[in-house]
């Protein structure tokens, strides 16, 4: 049981670390890495609970769930990176002389200050 708790507990700690980093850091890449770390934490928990003592065979179901989860996480990460790279392209193309920025900042704190402005944004 100690082994499961250490492994699964490490997963919970990873989840918490990822959550903290996601909320605190603004650059998109850090947020994306934080989300992947959170996901890895949850996968750790699944792997830890697959083995519940030597009397029982290891449970293949959580293993399969983790494999499915990894593919889902890879897909989501790929799409997020592509959207981000599109944003950077848009940033660089109109003003090629502008200094390189550290990447778009996406605010995710549920603070009211992040309400979008209601400026007429339909015009390209």
């Amino acid at each position: 049981m100690i082994a499961q708790f250490l492994y699964g507990g490490a997963g919970i700690l990873l989840f918490a670390l990822g959550l903290w980093s996601l909320l605190v850091h603004a650059p998109l890449l850090r947020k994306l890495i934080a989300l992947n770390i959170m996901g890895a934490g949850v996968f750790h928990v699944f792997i830890a609970i697959a083995h519940r003592g030597d009397a029982l065979p290891p449970d293949p179901v959580p293993h399969a769930l983790v494999l499915t989860g990894i593919v889902v996480a890879v897909s989501a990460t790929a799409l997020a990176l592509a959207l981000n790279s599109r944003l950077e392209q848009g940033e660089n193309e109109p003003e090629p002389a502008s200094s390189p920025s550290p990447g778009p900042r996406i605010h995710m704190q549920p603070a009211l200050s992040t309400e979008p402005s209601s400026k007429g944004a339909t015009h390209p």
């Binding site: 699964g8 507990g9 919970i12 928990v45 697959a50 519940r52 029982l56 293949p60 179901v61």
Partner: peptide, 22 residues
């Protein structure tokens, strides 16, 4: 979360999918 996880691991695993799957 750690406390909850620990207290659940201490319980009897009960019915698992593992034996059925095997």
């Amino acid at each position: 979360l750690l406390w909850v996880f620990h207290s659940t691991l201490a319980l009897d695993p009960g019915q698992r999918l593992a034996s059925l799957a095997m």
